[in-house]
Amino acid sequence: MAWTREQMAERAAKELEDGFYVNLGIGIPTLVSNYVPSDYDITLQSENGMMGMGPFPTEENIDADLINAGKQTITELPRSSYFSSSASFAMIRGGHIDLSVLGAMEVAQNGDLANWMIPGKLVKGMGGAMDLVSGVKRIVVVMDHTNKKGETKVLKECTLPLTGKGVVDLIITDLGVMEVREDALALIELAPEVSVEEVQAKTEADLVIDLQD
């Protein structure tokens, strides 16, 4: 059975290490915060200018001046700090953030990522995604293996405008986990009851099978 959104987020949380400073993208990546091991000290950065994001507020403590990068209302923690946008991206660009989990429209076997634009159709902008992929130490992509039409999103080469070139380290889809290696992607994990053949059939990229126990 393919992984659900929650299970993909749960798998992505396994990439966290104690003490990490982490930036989570919008959508499934946001769910990763629900699966942080309780004995880990993980600090979430929000690129609109906050370190140490707290959970969503209750109705009573909503604060319009306190939002995350997805423009959702959030809360602060005792350790939280606020800073301006240039200071926020100095952290990101300067390599001070350990891990970022992002969504994707397409990923290629060389680690190219496309997640910001469909020419002529979807023109929303890259937000902070280009800065994150070029500055953060490790980039994990979480996405469905295929799009709504059933076409693979795991390609030899991206067809959409890139967010970053050779930036992705690990890809977690509903079917399994793939590592970006020198010449190909390595399938290192399968979702329960998903076969290697199914992943191969739904993948255009060159795929090496290297399942880990």
């Binding site: 301006s84 946008s85 240039s86 926020s88 991206f89 902070g128 995604a129 280009m130 800065d131």
Partner: peptide
């Protein structure tokens, strides 16, 4: 934008902040 009435220059967010 799509009808060509408005010009748009996308900047990555961190690049925009640093440019300012």
């Amino acid at each position: 934008y799509l009808s060509g009435e408005l010009e748009l220059e996308f900047n990555p967010q961190g690049t925009l902040a640093e440019r300012l």
